[in-house]
C-alpha cells in the first residue's frame, strides 16, 4: 500500500493507528474505495462499447421516474387523472418505467453473456438481482394506484397469491392508502438503496475485463484475492533485509506495484 497523505485533510490515508470505530470505518472505506476509484477519470479501453451504457440508462430512467413521481404525488390524483398536464406527467412516469425495465433487462442480458460476475463480483450480480425483484414490486404497486378497472383486476388476482404465501395481512393490495405508502416511500427508497450499493460495488471491483482478457489483464489477475495479498507485503518488506535478491524483483522506484513486473 502506498502511504500517501491526502492533501488538505492533513491525515494520512492509511494510518495504522485508527483506534475508534469511526477511525476504523474511515480506514476500511478508504482502503475499499479510495476517491480515485470511486470517481475515476479513465476507464479501460474495452469500456468503449454500448454494452456498458445500459446500467447508466437504467439510472437515468430511474431518476426521471423519481422526479416525475414526486410531481405526481405532490399534486395528487385529482390532478394527474383529470388535467391534461397531469395525464402527461403521469404518462412520462409510466414510459420511463418501461424504459427502466427495458434498459435493466438488456443490461442483465449483457452482463450475463459477458460473465461479468467473475473476479469476486458475485455481490454485484446479487444486488442487481435484488434491484430487479424490488423494482418489479414497486411497478406492481404503481399499477394498483391507477384506481381503474385494470388495477382492480390486478389487485384481486394478486390478493389470492399474496394470501397463499401468507403476506396478505401486511401487504394488502385492497388497502389503497397502504399501497400509496409502499409505492411512494418504502419501495422507491429500497430500489434507490440497492442501486447505490450496486454501483458502489461496481466501483470497488472496477469494470470486469472481457472474457478474452481474463488470462492477460492485469486488473483481473490483481483482483484474485490470494496471490495479490501474499505478494504485496512480501515485496514491500524484502528490499530492506535481502539486498542479494535485488536482481529478482528489480528495485525500481515503483516496485511496490506488481503490475509492472507481470510479463
Amino acid at each position: 500500500m502506498t502511504a500517501q497523505a491526502t492533501p488538505g485533510q492533513g491525515a494520512p490515508v492509511d494510518e495504522a493507528d485508527a483506534h475508534t470505530l469511526t477511525g476504523r470505518a474511515r480506514r476500511w472505506l478508504l482502503r475499499k474505495l479510495p476517491p480515485d476509484k470511486l470517481l475515476p477519470e479513465d476507464q479501460p479501453s474495452y469500456v468503449m462499447s454500448w454494452a456498458y451504457v445500459f446500467g447508466m440508462g437504467a439510472i437515468a430512467s430511474l431518476l426521471w421516474i423519481i422526479i416525475s413521481g414526486i410531481v405526481l404525488g405532490l399534486n395528487g390524483p385529482q390532478w394527474y387523472h383529470v388535467s391534461s398536464l397531469g395525464s402527461f406527467v403521469n404518462s412520462t412516469h409510466l414510459w420511463s418505467v418501461e424504459l427502466f425495465f427495458i434498459f435493466m433487462v438488456v443490461h442483465l442480458w449483457l452482463k450475463f453473456w459477458m460473465a461479468a460476475w467473475r473476479g469476486g463480483r458475485a455481490l454485484t450480480w446479487i444486488t442487481g438481482v435484488i434491484s430487479f425483484v424490488v423494482s418489479i414490486v414497486a411497478a406492481f404497486t404503481g399499477y394498483l394506484l391507477q384506481t381503474n378497472f385494470d388495477s382492480q383486476w390486478i389487485a384481486f388476482e394478486a390478493k389470492d397469491a399474496l394470501n397463499a404465501v401468507g403476506v396478505g395481512a401486511w401487504f394488502n393490495v385492497a388497502n389503497l392508502g397502504q399501497l400509496f405508502t409502499w409505492h411512494v416511500t418504502l419501495l422507491p427508497l429500497a430500489v434507490g438503496a440497492v442501486v447505490v450499493l450496486h454501483v458502489l460495488l461496481v466501483r470497488v471491483h472496477g469494470v470486469a475485463p472481457p472474457l478474452e482478457a481474463a488470462e492477460s489483464d492485469a486488473q483481473l489477475l490483481h483482483s484474485r484475492p490470494e496471490p495479490a495479498e501474499a505478494a504485496e507485503p512480501a515485496e514491500a518488506a524484502e528490499p530492506a533485509e535481502v539486498p542479494a535478491s535485488a536482481e529478482s524483483s528489480g528495485t525500481q522506484p515503483s516496485g511496490i506495484e506488481p503490475r509492472g513486473a507481470a510479463q
Binding site: S49, W50, A51, F54, E98, I102, V106, W109
Partner: peptide, 13 residues
C-alpha cells in the same frame, strides 16, 4: 417490449 429489448441487445454488440 420483448422485440425492442432483443434489438437493443444486438445493436449494443
Amino acid at each position: 417490449v420483448i422485440v425492442v429489448m432483443i434489438i437493443l441487445f444486438i445493436l449494443a454488440l
